[in-house]
Write a protein that binds this DNA or RNA. Structure first.
Lengths: 238, 238
DNA sequence: CGTGTTCGTGTCCATCATACACTTATGCGA
DNA sequence: TCGCATAAGTGTATGATGGACACGAACACG
């Protein structure tokens, strides 16, 4: 720890053993009526061929969140998403070969922006409904559970749900989103009353097109107002 | 972990560079009318002589929480406390000499159980009020801020506050605790109504002694009931 | 122009949150 | 022992919020 000298080229030598440090990303996306998670097929051992979370090792001089974003782009093409640290998993035996500590992140992505068809895309990335996940590598099932639990908890007092919707959305879409995340039905009139009273969505003068019923009005999220309120310690609950 | 001996220098060679992984603990305790945090004086460089959070490097085959508990006992004598993972700090430059990723934990301890007098105890551990912290090593001030924010958020929907009180407490002590954590005054009657309606505290038939005013009834936290409710997905709010 | 489908809207009631003040119990000292 | 100082313990009234509930309006399509 104290007297550090540069290692010989291509080798890194330490006085004490060090675990490897990785990041893993749970990317959640909203489909018509369920939440999906983005998985990739592992191309290398261990767990070669199994489905796993996108992720990888942290670079020598790279921040943790930076590493998570880099891996997301490299493995799935997804950039510019809401990303937040979730939990760090470090049980000694979570990787069968050597000690790996994984800092997990969770991300919320608009499915529409990233239409991967399962199995066809880059190295086999695909969206999988949470209700029927395939067998997963390592402890990745646990990590997904933790991410969903966090989302469910957080969505009730912070408007992060908007990250899962397109920039313009109908109130019915927003309600559906909450119903899917919270796993219960909500009353339409009460929901609209509540959401509009929070004053965080702005009515646009656009409407849905191409639907064979009365077109719904489109709204957008007022992020500036939200940021201002948060800065002043304001609290919500949905 | 117990019979661990340092390997000969230079034994640990890796193909890729690896950051060191540490744990740091923010131990919060309740004093008469403020929250305090437990700090130790660093005996080694970097930041030798500065105040810092108790913590240290994770053992080769040691879980993260296990490492946090071990360091707490070693550096402060505190065992058997509420301990929960907080956040992982990994900016490349948070340690001036080499890359260290730190998994932060926060703990809640009853001050009465651990009466350290500042500066006298093992290697100089001491309780410091949050309102006037000394200069701290590394990014430890940031870590403390995160822990306090987490406590403030969590105390509103989970009864973790009880961890800061002795096994038998008066409702006024409990109210004071909430006032200190939430930084606002609460109405006595409303607070009691609320707490008693949650049905998580049990009236004992003991009373305060040695006070020069009407003795208050002592209560205890019903942990069994709480655990049962949590298991069934019950929710609180205080 | 009729039919199918979703949009958009208001009221009533129960529950909960908040504001607010006096009597009771105890220890201590005069 | 009596009074004083101090904190304990208790109820009600009012406003705010949450939840149940049903129907006419708009639009596409055949």
């Amino acid at each position: 720890m104290s007297a550090w000298t540069p290692p010989p080229p291509g080798r890194h030598v330490y006085e004490y053993p060090r675990p490897a440090v990785a990041v893993d990303c749970v990317v959640l996306g909203l489909d018509t009526d369920d939440l999906k998670v983005l998985l990739i097929r592992r191309g290398v051992d261990p767990w070669k061929g199994a489905w796993a979370l996108p992720g990888g090792f942290v670079g020598e001089r790279e921040g943790l969140e930076a590493a998570a974003r880099r891996e997301l782009v490299e493995e799935t093409g997804i950039g510019e998403v809401f990303l937040e640290q979730l939990y760090t998993f470090g049980e000694p035996d979570r990787d069968p070969r050597h000690r790996v500590i994984s800092v997990a992140y969770y991300a919320l992505a608009k499915l529409s922006d990233f239409k991967l068809t399962a199995g066809t895309d880059a190295a086999g990335a695909g969206w999988h409904p949470l209700s029927k996940l395939p067998a997963l590598a390592f402890d990745h099932a646990t990590i997904i559970d933790a991410a969903v639990a966090r989302l469910r908890g957080k969505v009730r007092y912070a408007p992060i749900g908007f990250e899962l919707l397109p920039p313009r959305f109908t109130l019915t879409q927003l309600q559906r989103l909450y119903e899917i995340i919270l796993e219960r039905e909500l009353d339409k009139r009460n929901f609209r009353k509540k959401i509009l009273s929070l004053d965080l969505v702005i009515e646009t003068d656009e409407k849905q097109t191409g639907v064979r019923h009365r077109a719904a009005r489109l709204y957008r999220f007022d992020r500036k107002k939200y940021d201002r309120l948060v800065k002043h310690g304001f609290e919500f609950a949905i």
